[in-house]
C-alpha cells in the first residue's frame, strides 16, 4: 500500500516522458506549453477560490455546524467519525471550490496526516462536482427532463463518502 502510493507518481512521470520520447515529440516545448496552460488556469480560478475561502472561513469559524448538527453527534461518535467532515460531505457535490476551501481548513487545523485530514483528502479526490457537471452537460444540449441522473449521481456520492470513511479507517 505504502509502496504503491510512493511509486505511482514517479513511474507515471517517467512513463509519460519515455512515451513522448519514443514518439519523437519535442518534450521540453510540450511541457512549457502545458505548464503555461496550468498557470493561466490557476489565475482563472483565483477569484472563485478567494471568494469561497472567504465564505467558508466565516461559516466554519462561526461554530454553526457543531450547534446545528448536535443531533447527529451521537451517531458520528458511535462510528468514530469526525464531525469536521460533515460540511465537506454536504458541499462536495455542489461546489468543488467550496469543498477545496473546507479541505484547506481541515488540513491546517488537524494536519494532513491526521485521520480527518486523510479522510477529507480522499473525499476531495474520489468524486467530481455532481450538480455542476449535470447542469453544465445537460444545459449544453438543452435537455430539461434529466431522468434519474441527479438521483443516481447523488447516490454515488453518498456511497463514495461512506466508502472513503471505511477505506481510510482500514488503511491507516
Amino acid at each position: 500500500m505504502r509502496l504503491v502510493s510512493i511509486f505511482i507518481i514517479p513511474i507515471f512521470v517517467v512513463g509519460v516522458i519515455l512515451y513522448g520520447f519514443f514518439h519523437k515529440i519535442d518534450l521540453y516545448e510540450a511541457f512549457l506549453r502545458g505548464a503555461k496552460e496550468g498557470l493561466v488556469m490557476t489565475f482563472q480560478i483565483a477569484p472563485a477560490v478567494i471568494a469561497m475561502v472567504f465564505a467558508t472561513n466565516l461559516f466554519l469559524n462561526s461554530n454553526f455546524l457543531s450547534w446545528f448538527f448536535q443531533f447527529l453527534e451521537p451517531v458520528l461518535t458511535f462510528f468514530h467519525a469526525p464531525m469536521e467532515i460533515l460540511p465537506m460531505a454536504f458541499v462536495r457535490p455542489i461546489s468543488g471550490t467550496a469543498s477545496l476551501a473546507i479541505l484547506n481548513n481541515i488540513l491546517r487545523h488537524f494536519g494532513p496526516d491526521s485521520f480527518v485530514g486523510r479522510l477529507a483528502s480522499t473525499l476531495q479526490g474520489c468524486t467530481d462536482t455532481t450538480i455542476y457537471v449535470l447542469a453544465l452537460y445537460f444545459g449544453s444540449i438543452h435537455v430539461k427532463k434529466t431522468g434519474h441522473a441527479l438521483a443516481v449521481g447523488l447516490f454515488a456520492d453518498f456511497i463514495g463518502i461512506i466508502a472513503s470513511f471505511l477505506i481510510v479507517s482500514f488503511f491507516f
Binding site: 512521470v13 509519460v16 510540450a30 511541457f31 506549453r33 502545458g34 496552460e37 496550468g38
Partner: peptide, 13 residues
Amino acid sequence: VLWTGVMKIAEES
C-alpha cells in the same frame, strides 16, 4: 503547473 506540463506531453505524444 508542473502536472499540466507533464500531461501536455502525454496529450501531444
